[in-house]
Design a binder for these strands. Structure first.
Lengths: 245, 245
DNA sequence: ACTCTTTTGTGTGTTGCCGCACATATAATT
DNA sequence: AATTATATGTGCGGCAACACACAAAAGAGT
């Protein structure tokens, strides 16, 4: 039987790729490819979720929106995970918005199908739960980082998390958008980016940021990145850090 | 058959109390009562967990400890939940420390028993997963709050979360301990507490803080408390807010 | 070429919290 | 009652990030 383009696509997602062949074979028919542009919203806060998404090349940001419009990112999900954990956790909705941070592809699966598969309790369930714990670690570390670290350190962490989930070294992203993610002023990002550029770690030109010295970025970052990355490795097998890639 | 003291104790935990009688009956023999003093550590970061804990009167704080010794709380768990979600999530450990924030009682259950029960996939599993999602909301909101709100607002939120999980209106807690939780200076808490005392919302005297005007505290708090509380209500049925209690 | 929009750069004053130092007050100990 | 330990109150200089204002640069559309 020929491997469909669909299948190839789905396997770019690490969670799916790590599934035992038998499990993957059972559910692959439920996948449907989808393509997203920068800024598209997958779920709004409180929305009932009809699908879950397994990003393959897209990156999704979990963004909290305050009553006064201020925003702050609580986590980022790429081809390392699944968007919509609340579905199998039993909530059917979250208090945050899921928004495309980097344009690209994903495969989606109907809520009903996912719940059905989850309830079988096999390798798929195990994997989803482990990913959820890794995500919790990321959210926790975001909380800590927000409290204790400078904007420059946080920008490093954020760039590394994004870089890990990208094929390219160049992020299509304005300072303004990053400032919304980190919950700081746009000028703060401009300043921090300038400092990092001066240290030859990145190059920042109108709408794009290019990672030049990844190792240097890791050194300039707070310990938060390493902690999160370590947990992803521990919980999900080989992680997605590009440090040695 | 007489109801044991053990059983009565366990039912003070909302998660357990909300279990269908049949499920509770099956697992109650696995419970073992434990008593904790302020500051006792249930798990250290990275520890393999041998037990999970269902607090009945104790309150547990999930505290992240940085390399340099700085600390920040990422969530608080009382008789509304379970301490040790990583066990059934598949990680067996967390990157945070679980420490007693308010002395009291809990019932504990062996890791193996919990995993066994979880894998049955019934009401118990559903409940544990729903609680985990509520906890994720709390952690997320902590991240947002750390980024966007003042120490005074955060102190309100923190006092409310603690108050909800307490029978009394008086918390046994020094400014210094609170500052470790919120990840700020001790003096910052002293100042914030003074402001709240001036507004007649609390009374702060050497080692204890007493809630005087709960409704006023809610108004002085940021929206974060209400959001978290709303999710606990939604996910776990009646929540534990004492607003109308 | 021209305008218009978006993105980035820069300056000024303000604020909230930090770090440190030290004074005072309230228990606990003897 | 005196001593010690713990907890809280207060002042001062410093800094990171804020709010606001506006200039400069880079693309996009006509």
């Amino acid at each position: 039987m020929p491997v469909s383009a669909n299948t190839n696509n789905a396997l770019r997602n690490y969670l799916l790729a790590a599934l035992p062949a038998a499990d993957f074979a059972r559910i692959e028919s439920k996948f449907e490819p989808v393509s997203f542009k920068l800024g598209e919203v997958l779920y709004e806060s409180g929305d009932k979720m009809d699908y879950v998404y397994f990003p393959t090349t897209a990156i999704v940001s979990m963004l909290y929106v305050m009553e006064n419009g201020a925003t702050a990112e609580i986590g980022v999900i790429g081809n390392d995970g699944i968007v919509g954990v609340s579905l199998f956790m039993g909530g059917d909705s979250t208090t945050s918005r899921a928004i495309i941070q980097s344009a690209g592809e994903a495969v989606r699966m109907k809520a009903k199908d996912l719940k059905c598969e989850f309830s079988l309790g096999g390798a798929f369930q195990t994997m989803l739960l482990r990913f959820t714990q890794a995500l919790m670690t990321q959210i926790s570390q975001t909380a800590v980082c927000n409290r204790l670290h400078t904007v420059e350190q946080q920008l490093c962490r954020w760039l590394l998390l994004s870089h890990d989930r990208l094929d390219s070294d160049t992020l299509v992203m304005t300072h303004d958008l990053i400032s919304n993610m980190l919950g700081v002023r746009r000028e703060g990002i401009t300043l921090a980016a300038q400092k990092l550029a001066k240290k030859k770690l990145i190059k920042s030109v109108r709408g794009t940021i290019t990672v030049i010295d990844r190792r240097g970025l890791e050194e300039a970052s707070c310990e938060c990145y390493a902690v999160v990355n370590g947990e992803y490795n521990r919980l999900l097998g080989r992680g997605i850090s590009r440090t040695f890639g």
